[in-house]
Write a protein that binds this DNA or RNA. Structure first.
Length: 350
DNA sequence: TATGATGATTTCCA
DNA sequence: TGGAAATCATCATA
């Protein structure tokens, strides 16, 4: 007697009719000779499954093989798959319906806005902000420097972008490889235990979620890197550069030549800003700083004041002999000459 | 590396 | 709202 026949005819007596876990269609049509035969088959299989762990390895392997070849096996597997889907999987399935993670959405949005993820758009909003900051600060000789810094920023952002995409690709590749591996494994196993396609799908989803959480960490660290880069390049104080010598001379010249009233009008500020290649705001800052520092320590600035007074006197003499005018920007309040190099404000500074 | 110089920012006031 | 004053942060130099 071959193994299958022996299996089919041994262990009789374990019926499936009325089995609580068995679907109705499997319980119907069990009457009659054919039905009795089926009942006995299923009983045999279940009995063998129950006792398979008590047997030796070789015997168990032989029985496993016999079970695999059993004509009722596909039907029984289908039933078991159905039961699994109706119980365990349906419960888990209900739990797995999760809304999109808001943190992940934030990270995705930020990476998109910064131009790290999505189509390359030349550095994103931060790059634009850096460019704007560069344009706003633009001192003498600083313009080129800002351009360099801007390109530095873009280069570093591109570097971050490349690292991000490389890592992302690696994760996706690993995820796909692992998913394929698990799917093959499950398909292989589905020959020896009931595994439904839904179960495989669920397993794939679990793997994808695990890899998504790793991806989220990658996104988080990328965002942090971008934020650090951004703060480094956007912090104006960090970017502070001294004005060049020529610009400082022009500003000092104006300051000491209008020492009695060192408050340039808007027009004068604009002119000075133009001459020094800095912004009007920077001119205002400079005069604000200069006034307060001069006032605090007139003695210290005495020498500087005398020097500028002498220099401008020479310029004025040259100008008058050539019939031209002094080149310092004029203001409605301009004294037009050099007051004594001490602070004689007729306005707000006392 | 300490220190002074200096450009920028913030807060308050008239 | 512009300016004074205080403060911060970085630069430059000894």
């Amino acid at each position: 007697m071959d193994e299958q026949t022996r299996l089919m005819h041994s262990h009789s007596g374990v019926g499936m009719a009325g089995h609580p876990g068995l679907p109705q269609h499997m319980q119907e049509g069990t009457g009659g000779t054919d039905g009795d035969g089926r009942k006995q088959d299923i009983g045999d299989i279940l009995q063998q499954i129950m006792t398979i762990t008590d047997q030796s390895l070789d015997e168990a392997q032989a029985r496993k093989h016999a079970l695999n070849c059993h004509r009722m096996k596909p039907a029984l597997f289908n039933v078991l798959c159905e039961i699994k889907e109706k119980t365990v999987l349906s419960i888990r399935g209900a739990q797995e319906e999760e809304p999109p993670d808001p943190q992940l959405m934030r990270l995705d949005n930020m990476l998109l806005a910064e131009g790290v993820s999505g189509p390359e758009k030349g550095g994103g909003s931060a790059a634009a902000a850096v460019a704007a900051a560069a344009a706003a600060s633009g001192g003498v000789g600083v313009g080129a420097e800002n351009t360099t810094e801007h390109s530095d920023y873009r280069a570093k952002l591109t570097q971050i972008r490349q690292i991000y995409h490389t890592e992302l690709e690696k994760y996706e590749q690993a995820c796909n490889e692992f998913t394929t591996h698990v799917m093959n494994l499950l398909r292989e196993q589905s020959r020896t235990r009931p595994i439904s396609p839904k179960e495989i799908e669920r397993m794939v989803n679990i793997i994808h979620r695990k890899f998504s959480s790793i991806q989220m960490q990658l996104k988080q660290s990328t965002c942090e890197a971008v934020m650090i880069l951004r703060s480094r390049f956007l912090d104006a104080r960090r970017k502070r550069r001294n004005f060049n010598k020529q610009a400082t001379e022009i500003l000092n010249e104006y300051f000491y030549s209008h020492l009695s009233n060192p408050y340039p009008s808007e027009e004068a500020k604009e002119e000075l800003a133009k001459k020094c290649a800095i912004t009007v705001a920077q001119v205002s800052n400079w005069f604000g700083n200069k006034r307060i520092r001069y006032k605090k320590n007139i003695g210290k600035f005495q020498e500087e004041a005398n020097m500028y007074a002498a220099r401008t006197a020479v310029n004025a003499a040259n100008a008058s002999s050539h019939g031209s005018q002094a080149n310092s920007p004029s203001t409605p309040n301009s004294a037009g000459g050099y007051p004594s190099p001490c602070y004689q404000s007729d306005r707000r500074i006392q």
